[in-house]
Design a protein around this nucleic acid. Structure first.
Lengths: 128, 128
DNA sequence: TGTATAGTTAGCTTCATGGCTAACAAATTA
DNA sequence: TAATTTGTTAGCCATGAAGCTAACTATACA
């Protein structure tokens, strides 16, 4: 329960780094070894391994070693969990906008009714 | 261009902190003053202000001061930008899964054809 | 068996983050 | 005008993140 929140912490923190986002993007296209993943980056291997470790700890990536090669693959659950968070926020945001719009419409209606009773110079201006 | 990526860095980094996520969630429900936002947190105001500042720098939040009160509101563009990133990754991931599934289906079909020519004990087992 | 490959561990530096207190500024209210 | 409220600035501290090199392990190849 309280654990789920800190998983979000880790997922967002993991994705805050461009190297790690690039790794995730690469792994979306299919699994790869550590060496293959590290190749595009001008970075010492131990530094790169730290990024892999952060991704594993966050739950975004899983890996297993066979022989001397460690193969990494995406574990999409954590990614979907973060995406869910956005969708929930957007739902709240949109519900609020709907309420706000309803409120504005109500104000507008009241204004129109007032204008209908006491027509003025400005009442002319609205086309529709 | 190169700027957009670092905006993503900032947005994800901002969302990696539970205090800041809570602020964003609160602001989804409508704007609020710094004091109102800070109230639920057992934290000194200057510490809290740093979070607000991080959110503003990331583009997630905007604020303006009127009198001695600073009012904060959500600026949904940055949020939507981050959500887009997830959706793009998911699209790539799903396309890859489709290709993988097609590959598996092809293998299965070949196996079935082979089984049809040389029926064996295992050929019985598949229902459809 | 010896050598190259692929990762890993250890330990170091530098800088960013998240928290604090204390003191200050500028509006409101009495 | 004096006191309160609401932020803000400055500066300190502890911790963690991101990079490096050097040295090591373990597998695969010749």
């Amino acid at each position: 329960m309280a654990n789920k929140l800190s998983q979000l912490d880790q997922v967002f923190a993991a994705l805050a780094d461009p190297t790690r986002r690039a790794i995730v993007m690469r792994l979306c296209a299919g699994e790869a070894s550590v060496g293959e993943l590290a190749d595009p980056f001008a970075m010492a291997l131990p530094s790169f391994m730290k990024h892999i470790h952060v991704l594993e700890t966050s739950g975004l990536v899983q890996s297993e070693k066979s022989g001397r090669v460690r193969t990494c693959r995406l574990s999409p659950d954590a990614l979907l969990g973060a995406e869910d968070w956005f969708q929930q926020q957007r739902a709240i945001w949109e519900a609020r906008l709907d309420r706000f719009e309803a409120y504005v419409m109500k104000l507008k209606k009241e204004k129109e009714q007032a204008a209908a009773k006491r027509p003025s110079r400005t009442a002319r201006k609205k086309g529709s």
